[in-house]
Structure formats: structure tokens, C-alpha cells
Design a protein around this nucleic acid. Sequence first.
DNA 1: TCCGTATATTCGGATAAGCGGATATATAAA
DNA 2: TTTATATATCCGCTTATCCGAATATACGGA
Lengths: 115, 115
Amino acid sequence: MSLSLSPAMLCKCLSDETRLQATLLVARFGELCVCDLVAALDAPQSTVSRHLAQLRSCGLLSGRRAGQWVHYRLNPELPEWAGRVIGELCAAATLAHPDLIRRAQGCCPPPVALS
Amino acid sequence: MSLSLSPAMLCKCLSDETRLQATLLVARFGELCVCDLVAALDAPQSTVSRHLAQLRSCGLLSGRRAGQWVHYRLNPELPEWAGRVIGELCAAATLAHPDLIRRAQGCCPPPVALS
DNA sequence: TCCGTATATTCGGATAAGCGGATATATAAA
DNA sequence: TTTATATATCCGCTTATCCGAATATACGGA
């Protein structure tokens, strides 16, 4: 079953600044936990979590629980066109928010040595 | 002055099916008048016109009046990244709506021989 | 000028989206 | 078990978005 993500739905996901920036950060860092995103986005935890849930329910992100933390990454089953769109948008958004990347620092143990 | 179109704003423009399909058609045909779009999209004229106004105000499309008609095209001043995003999304949307292209036939004189 | 066609805009109402404090759940450690 | 931390969800509220009939405007031709 191959993830029915429509172009319009992808756009809706990325049309909100918080979701776009969360996606940007996840794409840039490969994997981030919610507390990292809360810190980087400087938004209430419930807001960040709600947006992440939406991104996951649309198939854009996937979450992996590791102990107390949940690590989000780009859904590896994303269609190629969606990956290219996200890449273009994140590149452009990074130029517009060069400070955003700097604020994302690990608040939880890095996910090393996990099979 | 170089068109301040943010990635999130572009996504918001394309997150609505009507606007996405209108953009798709304009991109595909190069230039279309409102009545062509009304016919192809099978939506009320006021709805189509309202969405076109929004796309134009965001800088995605530009309109050119030719007599009674207004021809819309992709704004030639679009940033390159935006053009690439639109290209990807329209390609994917075309696959999802293969019938849409067929419905767009000229209802007004083709814009030939106009300086 | 008057009429017909094309397009734009206005307007009120319906629906959706976003917010964030409060609360619930999950996990780890004491 | 109790406590602490991380995350998810609930809830009422506010605001934004979309709709389409009605109306206004622009233009060309009679």
C-alpha cells in the first residue's frame, strides 16, 4: 500500500510556518525528537506535537519511539516527487531563516547504536 | 523589487485543489483566459476569479487583458525554486487528474499575433 | 449610447484551521 | 510504587478560509 499523499495535501502540510520549519529541521538533521523541535521552533509543546501528529498522519513524517523520546524523520516511503518538492522548499526556506538551523541542538541522547 | 514569495505562501496558494488545478492548466497551456478555466475546472465564475486574484496577488500568476478577456500565465518573475516546485507538483497532479487537461479548450480567440 | 459578454468584487454565512492551557499517557528511574 | 520527564490528546476559543449568488466594472459591437 503506497501512501496516498496528494500534491494539494502536501502543500497544505507545508503551508503552515511551524510545520514547514519542523519539516525543514527534520530533513536537515535526519532525525529529531519533539523536545529538539520545541526548542528550535520556540513554540509550546502542545502546538509542536499537534503539528507533528498532522505531518505524520499525512505520511510526511514517521515517528519512532526510543525510550521516553519520539524521534521524527522524513517518511522513507515518501514518493519521489514529494521528496523533491520538500527539498526545494526546504532549501528556499533555509535561506529565509538561516538562524533556524542553529537553534536545533540535541536535548536528548543521540540515537546512536540503535539497531 | 523582487517578488517576496515565501515557501509557505507558495504552498498555501497550491494547497487548494481549485488553485492547484488552475495553476497546472496555466502552466501546461502557457496562457489561458478565465472562461477557459471556468470550463475546465467546472466551477462558478466568481470562485475561479477569486482564486485567480489570489494567485496573482501572491505573484504566482500574472494577468494580461486582451479585449474582453484576461489571459493568465505563470508570472515570469517567479523565483527559480518556485518554478521547480510548481513543475514537480503539476507533474504529480497531472498524473492524478489525467482528464483535466482534456477539458481545457479555447473559448476565446487564441492570443496570436498580439505584440 | 445601449446591450451583451467577460471578468472582478462584495457580502453573509458555513466550515476549517490554528492556538495553547490543561490533562492524559508512556517510559524510566528512584 | 512514586516521581519526573517526554509526548499526545482534549477542549473551548479565535481567526482564517472557502463558497457562490448578487452586483459592479470593463470592453466591444451595434
